[in-house]
Nucleic acid binder design. Structure first.
Lengths: 194, 194
DNA sequence: ATACTGACTAAAATACGGATTTAGTCAATA
DNA sequence: TATTGACTAAATCCGTATTTTAGTCAGTAT
């Protein structure tokens, strides 16, 4: 029975509950009962509920990270890569319900304990975008004076639309618009033929 | 005393209070006392608190509308007009505190009574952007296949960044990024020289 | 030492009743 | 038509009692 890692069982169960009911409506007892253990064992593996949630969130974002890394690593035209990156990012995050819950962290004082994981993800994204833009610049497809500032803009746009998209469930409705928005941004970076 | 329009006195006073304390922290009595009238008189001119707030919000947005109309009516290059439109829009809305309060309308069930005014403003903006793009298309500066769809994108972007900008007071911090974002969007619409 | 239990505690969330505030009404008045 | 101010009903506030739940820990088993 304990040949299977209990810690990962806990995370698995926690993922189910947090995803379905959210952080507040999930109790540590729910999770413990679900894996037929006493509640105390959760505190053997995790400092507390917040740390456990962070772990779940981290794993959720990790699958997104992996997919995005793959896109960035591809040897396609960097303009295509950028568009794919944006579309995939939004598509995958659209199903990341625990991430959705933490969106409130930015706008209220809520979910402050999730700051580290969110910042880590943001840093990751900045890095990937920088890689894409640098590659594009080197190859001559992309023309930007200041890469860092361009990254800021893209981050601002993709972060900005998250709330209407995810918290108001408008993703499907706006899918087309998102696609065209991505194209638009990519176009504005395309090296002009003079 | 009543040669001056009492209705506008009420709105003036209401504007002060709503702007300073917000909708919930302002009482009808506050407003009435401030103009040395009995509370009942407010209900002679307005159906209730919500209608009064709507009137205040309407006027607040109206000054923005007027400024934006002026920009759209100018005979500058339509690409410049578009950029000016976006920057002015954000700059003016940044100080529209009652509008800020209604931003929550979108993301919670709160402030539903403000729906009409918000929708009216959105319609106004779509109209202005359409005018700019059509003019640009006619003059050959702007190259878009579908104007309506481009309007959607621009609306999505400018609406999207409102929350971080206004509710988190990041306007000053992001002023540069906003400027570059506007340039970027404008650039993506610029007719390519082939 | 490692993994786990389950009773225990303290803190947070919830429920509730009573007091207070406040939105909205209306008959009277000028 | 414009305004008053007392009145009502609804919402908010507030303290408190109750319940739920996060987190602890001494003890058990392996």
């Amino acid at each position: 029975m304990s040949e299977i890692n209990v810690k990962s069982l806990i995370v698995e169960s926690a993922t189910k509950y947090f995803s379905k009911f959210g952080f507040h409506k999930t109790t540590m007892d729910d999770i413990a009962k679900h894996i037929h253990k006493a509640k105390g064992v959760l505190y053997y593996y995790f400092k507390g509920k917040e740390e456990l949630f962070n772990e779940v969130l981290k794993q959720e974002l990790n699958t997104v990270k992996i997919a995005l890394k793959e896109i960035v690593a591809s040897d396609k035209d960097s303009l295509i890569t950028l568009k794919e990156y944006m579309l995939t990012r939004l598509k995958l995050l659209n199903t990341a319900v625990n991430y959705h819950e933490t969106l409130e962290a930015d706008f209220f004082g809520k979910y402050l304990f999730v700051k580290d994981v969110r910042e880590d993800f943001e840093e990751f994204e900045r890095k990937q975008l920088t890689i894409i833009l640098e590659k594009g610049k080197k190859e001559g497809f992309i023309d930007v004076k200041n890469i860092n500032s361009t990254v800021n803009i893209i981050m601002m746009v993709v972060n900005g639309i998250e709330i209407p998209l995810f918290l108001q469930n408008k993703y499907k409705e706006y899918e087309n618009t998102i696609d065209e928005l991505s194209s638009m941004i990519v176009n504005s970076l395309r090296t002009q033929k003079k």
